[in-house]
Every structure is written in C-alpha cells, then in structure tokens.
Write a protein that binds this DNA or RNA. Structure first.
Ligand SMILES: [Mn+2]
Ligand SMILES: [Mn+2]
Ligand SMILES: [Mn+2]
Ligand SMILES: [Mn+2]
Lengths: 223, 223
DNA sequence: AATTAAATTTAGACAAATCTAAAAATAAAT
DNA sequence: ATTTATTTTTAGATTTGTCTAAATTTAATT
C-alpha cells in the first residue's frame, strides 16, 4: 500500500511517542505535529481504517504491527538520508533533519537499498541514532548518559539528544563529536558540573545541562 | 515564493512544451500532465495570478521571465538528481527519471548547491540533456541527429531522446552509450537504415527508427 | 454566411488535510 | 457525589487539486 507524506509523518511521530509512552494521546501528538487535536482525530480514524492503528475514541492509541513496520521504514529512510547529507554532502548535523524530513517521503525502495549500499550500510545517523535495517531491525547499543559514567571510565560519545545548532556550537568548542573518546575526572556536587578530559586535550568543565544530553558507551572490560 | 509539487510539475512541463512551440495550448499540456483540460485551466489561472504565466483565455499561454527562472531551477534539480542516481548509485538511465520526478521537489537550495559540488558540477544528465547552472544558464552544444551526420564523419553520442528501457536495451546491444564514438559507413536509401562503426567494433546496421533518436556532436576540424 | 467540429472554459461536486467552535466524554477537585 | 477542568471528538467550513457535464469560444467545413 501507498501512503501520503502527511500519513507518513503521523505514523513516524506516533512511533517516536510510543517509545516513551506505551499508549499515545491526541494532544501530545497534536503538539508534536504542530497541528490541532481535531485534525489529529481525523487522521487517527483514517489510520485505523487502514489497519495501521489500534484506536478507540477517548482511549488513546498505538501502532499495530503493520503500522510499526511502516514507521520503521520511514525512520530508516530519514536516517539514511541524514547520513548522506552529513557524510557525503558535508552538512552540519543541525541542518540535516529538516531536509531529511522531505527526502524520507521519496517512495522508491530500490533507491533506499542502493543508497544504503552507497553509504556503506551505516548503523547510526549523524546524531548517533540507530538506523533500522531493511527488515526493521534496530542495532542495539547499551548507551549511558554522560552523567552516569563512572569516574575515569574511558568512553566514546555515541549520541546527542539535543540536536540544535547551539548545542553543536558548544560541543564543537569543547572538541566533542560522535566517536570522541573522553572520561570524567571530577564531579562537582555543587552544581552537577563535570571536569572531563576530551581525547588528549587539557581537562575542561562542562555543565550538567550539557552533560545530560550526551550519551556514551564503553566496552565492559576496557579501562 | 514557494510552490507546491503540483505547481512545479506544471511549470516544468509548460517550459518543456515551450521549447517546441512558442505558445502552449491547454489540451497538449493536459495530455502531458495526464490530467483533464478543465484541471489545466484551473491551474493556469493560479499560475497567472502568481505572475508566472502570460495567459488570456482561449488564446494559449507561455511562461513569464520569472516563470522561466522557476522552471529552469526545477529542471536543474531534476537533472542533478538523475546524474546522482546514475553515476553514484548505479541506476540505469531508464530508471532515474521517475525517481528524480520526486526528488526535484525537495526544497533546500543549499542541498542542491552541495549536491552539485559533490557531483563535480556536471553539465549533462544521464540522457545527455544539459543541466542548467545556478543562474539558469544552459550549456549549449550544437547537436546533430545521427541521421544527418555526414558519411564517415567521426562523432560522439551526446544524447538520446527516447529514454525507455527498450531503447536502452537496444543501444546496449550495439555497444552505444553516451560518449561513444562512431561514424556512418553507408546509408541505405531503401529503408533509411545505416551501417555504422561503433568505436572499434565490427560494423553493424541500425534502423532509421533507432538513428533518429540518437544525437551526436563533433568538432569542426576533426576527421 | 451558416453549420459543424474542436478546443477551452465554467459550474458544481468531491477527496484530502486543515481549521474553529461547540458538544461529549473522561479525569480531577471539591 | 457533584461540580469543575481537561481531553477528545464532532460539526461545519476552507484550501488545493481533481473530476464530469454543460456552456462558450474559436476553428474548420460546407
Ligand atoms: Mn517528513
Ligand atoms: Mn537523526
Ligand atoms: Mn516532479
Ligand atoms: Mn534526463
């Protein structure tokens, strides 16, 4: 079956909201879609008709299995295009999302499989988010918030949740990007800020606000 | 100003029809757009309102200068994406058009200028059609129909007008592609077919029907 | 010049996606 | 257990792009 861009955007957003809350409600979806609850209700009926949504009025809703499959396909396209934009065209990570928001709706399956191959079957997008494979399987990495990283445990930056230009600016200043290796030297309980060593640079201090948006991972048996 | 995909498709198609006939008429545009004349009339009014079209009812129409600028921008995007699909993702030329038909509507200007750079600022798409530059300037090559090529004049294949899979199949069989060097050995007046030598292969015979879709160019002072 | 044919436009309707305003259902507070 | 507040849905309107059928204009024939 074929879906409109609008339907796809709704499906994808429902999927993202489901990741946080088992069941999604009308108002929060309306907020995310920057539209009115009444419009959301209309779309919910349509998606229910197409068997993509479990939905009873006033009771909240969530994607069916077919619906989730569709959602994962769109997420896959979105993140592959983001990877392309960042790694082939040289866009900064804070610019890729808006453009991928359009590219994700281009409908050719062969386009995506060729793009995937061309990019070298990447597993993570420029924000560190996992790219589902053609079957919808998502690579799982046990991530850890930088705030919870044990003292002096060396770790690699794997994703950043705040993907704005301001955050990008800040991290660039510190020399932090995806794949950057760092460790915590000292924790200041006064305001929660951290003294960290980024790669081989001299130590620096970052605020709790920055740290809570940075996720890292590390192998269990590495110092 | 911003235009819908539908508006862009109309504008582009009007541009293409104008290349053949100074003034375009409703029925031929309807045929190209696979829609009804009544729908075309509706769109003509809208484009006239937006100052993109010179149009008086029953009198035919053509793009204004601003309209032509828009059209060239869309043609540029379409052909750059076709180039990308063919030369980076490895699509055959008969598959790229349909996909580019969607990609051409992705709206970011920076995307196109970066894509252009990434592709090496190509001048021709996979069908040999010229790619307008960012100012809408089209590289002019004096092309010649293969039927009009003087006997034994060596020439290079520069474009093919019939861009179907069947034609691609046929040309592949003859070893003909864009950039292929060939010359005519003999002209058969009986049915208009041509004996040609493709590159260094043994001579072969192609029908008038094939030849009339193939365009070539050659330097004036080359044998 | 009058008639016939072809091309084009208008009138009115419809589907998709949106909105506002009002009604209905559910949840929270007294 | 009522009342009040919040959430959600319905009703009805709007915009975009499409359609069919009928009316109008232009072109072609007699
Ligand atoms: Mn989108
Ligand atoms: Mn992303
Ligand atoms: Mn198109
Ligand atoms: Mn082309």
């Amino acid at each position: 079956m074929n879906f409109t861009s609008t339907e796809e955007n709704y499906i994808k957003q429902i999927y993202h909201l489901q990741q946080e809350k088992e069941r999604v409600n009308t108002n929060s979806l309306a907020a995310e879609m920057k539209t009115r609850p009444a419009s959301v209700t209309d779309m919910l009926k349509k998606l229910k008709n197409k068997k993509l949504l479990q939905y009873e009025r006033y009771r909240g809703f969530k994607l069916t299995e077919p619906g989730k499959k569709i959602a994962l396909g769109i997420v896959r396209k979105h993140r592959l295009w983001e990877f392309f934009l960042a790694n082939k065209l040289g866009f900064e990570w804070d610019k890729v999302h808006v453009i991928a928001e359009e590219l994700e709706h281009v409908s050719s399956d062969e386009l995506i499989s060729r793009l995937d191959l061309f990019l070298g079957n990447p597993s993570f997008d420029p924000h560190g988010d996992p790219i589902p494979d053609r079957n919808g399987k998502i690579p799982q990495v046990k991530q850890l918030n930088l705030l919870s990283l044990p003292l002096s445990q060396q770790a690699t930056v794997s994703s950043v949740t705040n993907q704005t230009g301001e955050m990008l600016d800040m991290l660039k200043h510190y020399g932090i990007g995806l794949g950057t290796v760092l460790r915590i030297i000292k924790r200041f309980d006064f305001d929660g800020s951290l003294e960290i060593r980024v790669a081989k640079q001299p130590p620096c201090i970052i605020t709790e606000q920055v740290a809570k948006n940075v996720f890292v991972h590390y192998a269990k048996n590495t110092t």
